[in-house]
Structures are given as structure tokens and as C-alpha cells.
Design a protein around this nucleic acid. Structure first.
Lengths: 347, 347
DNA sequence: CTGAAAGCGCTTACAG
DNA sequence: CTGAAAGCGCTTACAG
């Protein structure tokens, strides 16, 4: 039973055809007589045969799996609900295409490089690049390694590069508009002292949101002078909030770069005597399930993490199939208004 | 550059030896003269050669990757911080052993079966089984498929099975003691009306915690008659809490089966006028980063998700290497006391 | 300590 | 429409 796995040869013999014909019947790359095909499928079924992936991989130089390396600290991965949703979205389209997902969680740059090198040694066909930074070395690294890649971003790619450069497709959302909308919601409610707790600014998505925040403030004639850099953890959300609320001239509203920081911040503010939303309005980002079921609910931004996963996977499959898109916009970013916004209480 | 990947033949030629010797130099399965080895490594390095995993897999019938299928709905995966931490723990030991992790998120039983079948077609060497249910079909399924497996559980395995049955190692924590401790903490604080919001009871870990809750209550002479089944989402935590607080004779403390339900429940209770912890004490489970940075913090149980991942991976590697443990206890479950417990306010 | 050769289980030109 | 055979890039008895 173990180790007695049937091979394509067994099926061929049972069906009275050659191995090549069995292969063709399954791949459909060339026509096979209807009746022959039937015999082959029957034989395969009764033997419970499935093609060996390693043999296929060796013969075709295709592994039918894609790779994803996550380079964040475990507590951040656990805290941020983006990853699991993104992965679930990927899976949905990969499974349909019969592809697998190889996952690597790495602690540092060396481990990350090692992971990509193992990928390139015939473990995966392509990769999705997450958490891209300014001047990120990974696009070049994976290109050198011969891996097809797709980049996930939170803003449209710059069009500076020469046209003839082999381009890595960028799958992006436009977070800026949503951040602008958040600020507008707050301004409309009467706030003028609005702070921002950002994500780690080395990430382009965090920087993009920060820039969008600053731009929106300026647009409304307000000074974007209260920006604290967080790292997406609850701990940083709490600490940033403590810093912002310290002193008497504290902001009346805070725009957080993710839900977890917002929830921790909100909890801190409440414990220090402020009422939410009467004394402090807050907004999150990424629309976690928890934020929707808090009382009052947390106003947040749904960025369609699962859809982004699906689109990224689809784009990568397309690139592997030879048609590389330069960029594709995932158009599902929408502000979800809940009870965490109110007019400021002080006159 | 692409597709021009060097092969072991190239290295052999460059080093002036046979392919077999190159192979042996790397595997260390037989001694190779020091000076020969040096030449081989130098050649490999300058050619930037790494062995092709598909070729290795075909030749050895080993894929060097293990599989993990997660059969929960995406919003639950996203909400529960267990998975990412568990995976990070696995990764740490897998990476060290040069192994990969293949991940599959499936929506239903058919997709799950399909995933294991693909695994068995030479994609992975072994699997870790999560969220085991009563009479779970997966242990048999994977055994039939010839996959080595390890089961993650929240209680010691029953010793009923005949000794000669090929056994699937069980890696487990003893959640019961922690739940007992939680109840004791509450009873010591003066509570006698304590409720429990469980996870989906088809899971043995959820049932185990529920049973432990009931046993602890009974031990203290209390009636475990307020148990509501949740599903680990914030939505279910809120709804279960609403149900429990409905009416005038509501419990003064609630033991939740995970942190997210506790946080949503706590938020609901607060919004309906109760003070936490003065009017309602609450406890969570799994010790998420958020629960530690709430104000007041949420008393929870640290189950060492990452350690469990590491031990599960290590146990699986051992089983693949031929030495199967019957069961291994992960001994890191500890109650983390924070500010969410206080004596009941009513006399 | 090393080499030559068979074999792992597929796919794919090449003939027919 | 089908078969025979080479080849994908490794590993591993078998000789020496």
C-alpha cells in the first residue's frame, strides 16, 4: 500500500497502450481516440493512479506551485489579519488551476534570500512579493534567479522605467483615495486636530497611506503635524496613542493604519478617561472581522485582502502563461463607516 | 540567464569528477577526499549551482516538503491568531531542516480530500492535521494515501487502540488544567455565576475546553449550566454575550474559548452599560498580542502556538525519519493574568 | 576514495 | 491517432 504507488507504465499496460498515449489522454495536448481515452481513464481509476508531481516537474520544468515569503515578525503576522485573508484569496484561484502554494516565514534578510534561492532550485514557478519597500532588492533578486514575480502594492506603479525593461507586474489598490475619504469624514464631523498612526514607513504601502493622510489634511487647510510611526502591533498602537494623548492639546481624532492599532489605541484612550467616540474619534484600516463587531463598531477601510490575493494569483498565473500585465488595479477599496466617529465634544 | 540553470553534470565537468561524486560530496553519504570536495564546492559556487529539487524528489521519492491544510472559513482564519503563529513555529524548524511548507486553505470536504490527494501524488512527504474532530476521517484518509502524519490535539490521546496499529503521533497541550485555573481564579475572586462561550464543539479541542470548564465548575460545587457555543469569530462572541447578558440573572463572569470572542463580548457588555471588570469579569484563550495591550488587559491562556508548531514539525520530521513517537506533550500552557478579573460588584 | 551506468516517472519530438 | 525512445537532473547500488 505504501510505496506501491502505480506509475504511468502500470496504467499504460492495463489499458493496452503506450505511456505516451496515457500522458496525452490526460494533458489533451494531442487528440486521443475517444474509446482509447475511455479505456485509459478506466484503468487509471481502478489503479487509483495520479501522475507523480516530481516526475512531471522534472520533465516539464514546471512545478505547479508558487511561493510566498513573509518577512515579518511572528507577532505582527498574527496580529495583522491581512495575511490569512490574502492567502485564502490566493488559494481559491490556485486550487482551481491545480497549483500549490509554498509558504515561508522568515526572520531576517539572509533567511529571505535563502528562501528565494530554494524556490529557484525548482521548487516554485513564481512568487508574489509582499510588503515592498523603497528600493526593494527582491524584484532584482528574483529576476536574477529566474523566478516570475508579481508585486503587491498600495499605489499605482511609477511609469519611469524604460519600456524595454522586463517588467514585473504590479497588482495594486489605491489606498490614497480611502485615506482621503476618512479625513474628509472627520473634517465634516467638525474635527481639525487629527493625528495619524502609521505603519512602518519603510514599506511603500505605509508610506503611501501616510502621504495620503498628509495630502488630505493639507487639502483641508490643516497641518499634518501629528504623525507617529507604529509597526502594526497592538503594543505600538497603544504607545503611539499614549504619546498623542499626552499633554492637554491632544487631537480629537486619530487615523490608524490598521485595525489592531486602532483597537488598542481606543482601549487605551477609554481607560484614560476619554469616551469613544464623543471625546475621541478613531478610524482603522483593513476592516478586520473584529472591528465590525465591536460596540461601537470601528470605522475602517475594506481593502479586499482576499480579492487582492485572488487577483495577484491570477496575474501571476497569467505571467507564467506568457502574458505579463504591466499593472492591474484591484478596485475594491471602500470606507466602511461605523460608530467610532462623532463630532468633537469640546467647543 | 533564465533556463540556463547549471546541472550537476556541469559541476562534475568543471571539477573533473563524476556526477556521483558531486552528489556524494553534498550529501555526505560516503566520504569524499578533502581536496576533491574542495574542488567540487568551488566549481558549484562559481557556477552558482544548487541541486534541482524536482530531480532530487524523483530520485529519492522525497519531496522535502510537508503539507498543511486549513479547513476553516477565511474570516475565521483571519480572526483567530493561532494559525499564523503556529505556522511561524513550523517554519522555524522546517527551514533549519531545509524543508518547505505547502499550505492549502480549503472551503469544503471535497476540496480537502482533493488537497490530500494532490499531496499524496508526490507533493509532500507528510502532513500535520489540525482541528481534529470526533471520529475524524482524515487520519485514515492520509494513511491510505501513504502520507506520514502528525495530529495536533488539546488533550492526551486515548490509549484504547491496539498496540500493533500503525500509530499517528499526537502532539498535544493540556488545556484542561488551564481552564480549571481560570475558573479557580474567578471563584477565588468571589464569582459563582460563571458562563462559558465555547468554540465549535465538533472540534475536539473546543469540546475538551468545554468539558474542562464543566468539570472545574462541578469541582467547585457550581452548576455549569450556562454554556453557549460560538465559532471563534467576533460576531459569535458578541452574539453569545448578548444572549448571556439578556435577562436580569446574568452571569458575573464569562470564560471565552478564544481572545477574539472575548474582546467582542467585552466590548458588547461595556456598550450595554456594564463596567469591565467591575460588573463583568472576562477571560480569553490563546493570548493574542492584542489581548495583552488592551486596557485593562485581557486575562488569557498562552498555549504557545509557535512552540506547538515547532514541536509538531519536529515530530513529523522524526516520524519521516523513522522514529514515530506515540504522543508528545507540549508543556507551555500557562494562564496569563491581566486586569479583566475583579470581584463581582453585587453583594 | 571514485567512476560508469541504471533508474526514478513523467513528457515530447520523431516516425509511422 | 499511436508507439518507441530519448531526455529531464538527480541518486545509488555495483565495480574497482
Amino acid at each position: 500500500m505504501h510505496g506501491a504507488r502505480p506509475t504511468i507504465g502500470d496504467v499504460a499496460r492495463a489499458a493496452g497502450v503506450s505511456k505516451g498515449t496515457v500522458s496525452l489522454a490526460y494533458s489533451g495536448k494531442r487528440p486521443v481516440a475517444e474509446e482509447t481515452r475511455r479505456r485509459i481513464f478506466a484503468a487509471a481509476e481502478s489503479l487509483r493512479w495520479t501522475a507523480s508531481s516530481s516526475a512531471q516537474a522534472l520533465a516539464t520544468s514546471r512545478t505547479s506551485t508558487i511561493g510566498l515569503v513573509i518577512a515579518r515578525r511572528p507577532e505582527i503576522i498574527a496580529t495583522d489579519t491581512f495575511f490569512p485573508r490574502f492567502i485564502a484569496g490566493c488559494e481559491a484561484v490556485l486550487a482551481e488551476a491545480g497549483m500549490g502554494l509554498m509558504l515561508n516565514v522568515v526572520a531576517d534578510d539572509d533567511a529571505e534570500t535563502a528562501a528565494y534561492e530554494r524556490y529557484a532550485a525548482g521548487r516554485v514557478d513564481g512568487v508574489i512579493l509582499l510588503d515592498v519597500e523603497q528600493g526593494d532588492r527582491r524584484p532584482d533578486l528574483v529576476r536574477e534567479l529566474g523566478l516570475t514575480a508579481v508585486i503587491l502594492s498600495a499605489e499605482a506603479p511609477h511609469e519611469e522605467e524604460p519600456v524595454d525593461t522586463p517588467v514585473t507586474p504590479v497588482v495594486y489598490t489605491e489606498d490614497a483615495a480611502a485615506v482621503g475619504e476618512l479625513v474628509e469624514l472627520l473634517v465634516d464631523a467638525g474635527h481639525s486636530s487629527i493625528a495619524h498612526v502609521s505603519g512602518p514607513l519603510r514599506y511603500v504601502h505605509a508610506a503611501a497611506r501616510r502621504d495620503a493622510f498628509a495630502a488630505a489634511m493639507t487639502r483641508h487647510g490643516l497641518l499634518p503635524d501629528r504623525i507617529v510611526e507604529g509597526d502594526f502591533t497592538a503594543a505600538s498602537g497603544r504607545d503611539a496613542t499614549a504619546a498623542l494623548l499626552d499633554g492637554d492639546d491632544h487631537p480629537t481624532a486619530i487615523v490608524y493604519a490598521n485595525d489592531v492599532m486602532a483597537i488598542a489605541g481606543l482601549s487605551y484612550a477609554r481607560s484614560s478617561g476619554l469616551r469613544i467616540p464623543e471625546d475621541l474619534s478613531v478610524t482603522g484600516f483593513d476592516d478586520s472581522e473584529l472591528s465590525a463587531h465591536l460596540s461601537p463598531g470601528l470605522t475602517s477601510v475594506s481593502t479586499g485582502a482576499d480579492v487582492r490575493g485572488a487577483v495577484a494569483a491570477r496575474t501571476l498565473l497569467a505571467a507564467l502563461g506568457g502574458d505579463a500585465h504591466r499593472s492591474v488595479l484591484v478596485d475594491g477599496t471602500v470606507v466602511v463607516r461605523r460608530g467610532s466617529i462623532a463630532p468633537p465634544s469640546q467647543p
